[in-house]
Simulated scan of single mutants.
Amino acid sequence: MKTYRLEFSQKIPVSLDTAWDFFSSPLNLSEITPKDMTFDVTSPIQKDTKMYTGMIITYKVSPLLGIKLNWMTEITHVKDKEYFIDEQRFGPFAFWHHNHHFEAVEGGVLMHDILHYAIGWGPIGSIANAVVVNNKINNIFNFRYKKVEELFGKL
């Protein structure tokens, strides 16, 4: 099975505490996801809940053609104010491993995402990645970049 790796970085002019507080809340994910994906957290999560190791989060998401899919991720690692990792347990990918890193830098925070994913389906999955999936993921992170700038400003 072919796996793919993408990396994204962004600096924002906020404290590490502010960045961590926002990004470690599962309910804020829908705020930084394109509206056309109709991303809804379906887990019974309270507004002030923060991610923790072993946390299971369920979603409904429409990645393509408005078709709603169930997605379940587990937060497998958390180091407070440094990083957390989510891994898909059930969902649209054959494999999904997403690192979210946070580092205090002059004037704010550097956020760095490392994503490994696989589609499966052999050569058909490779074609799907080249034609649709890679572009869709990049578009999601481009949207996220702009939305984070809107919410927190530029550094």
Rank of each mutant, 00 (worst) to 15 (best):
L69I: 08
G91R: 06
E7L: 09
M55H: 05
V78L: 07
M51D: 09
T49L: 09
I75H: 00
N135A: 14
T58S: 15
H101K: 14
H112I: 01
Y4W: 10
D40A: 14
Q46E: 11
I119K: 07
N99I: 14
I124P: 02
G122C: 01
I127V: 15
M55T: 05
D21T: 08
M111V: 07
I75S: 00
T33A: 03
W121D: 11
T76W: 06
S30H: 08
V14I: 14
L64H: 08
P92C: 08
P63Q: 01
G125L: 02
F8R: 12
G66Y: 08
Y117P: 04
E31V: 09
I127S: 06
D80C: 10
A94H: 12
K60D: 14
G153R: 04
L69R: 13
N139C: 07
D17Y: 08
R89A: 04
H100Y: 06
F95A: 12
N70I: 04
I114S: 13
H77Y: 13
I119L: 14
Y117Q: 00
M72D: 13
S24Q: 08
G120F: 01
P92W: 00
K79H: 12
K11S: 12
P63G: 00
Y145H: 15
Y117C: 04
F143C: 08
I67W: 05
P44K: 14
A104R: 10
E31C: 12
P123W: 12
L65Y: 12
N142F: 11
S25C: 13
T33E: 06
D48K: 09
Y52S: 14
D80A: 13
I127W: 13
P44W: 10
N70A: 10
F23T: 01
W20L: 04
L29C: 06
V61P: 01
L155A: 12
D86T: 05
N138V: 12
F93C: 02
L110F: 02
K47R: 13
P13W: 00
K147G: 03
E149C: 15
S24F: 03
V41F: 07
K136Q: 12
I127H: 03
K60P: 00
V131S: 07
T3C: 10
T3S: 13
F141Y: 11
P123H: 03
Y59M: 10
E149K: 15
W96R: 06
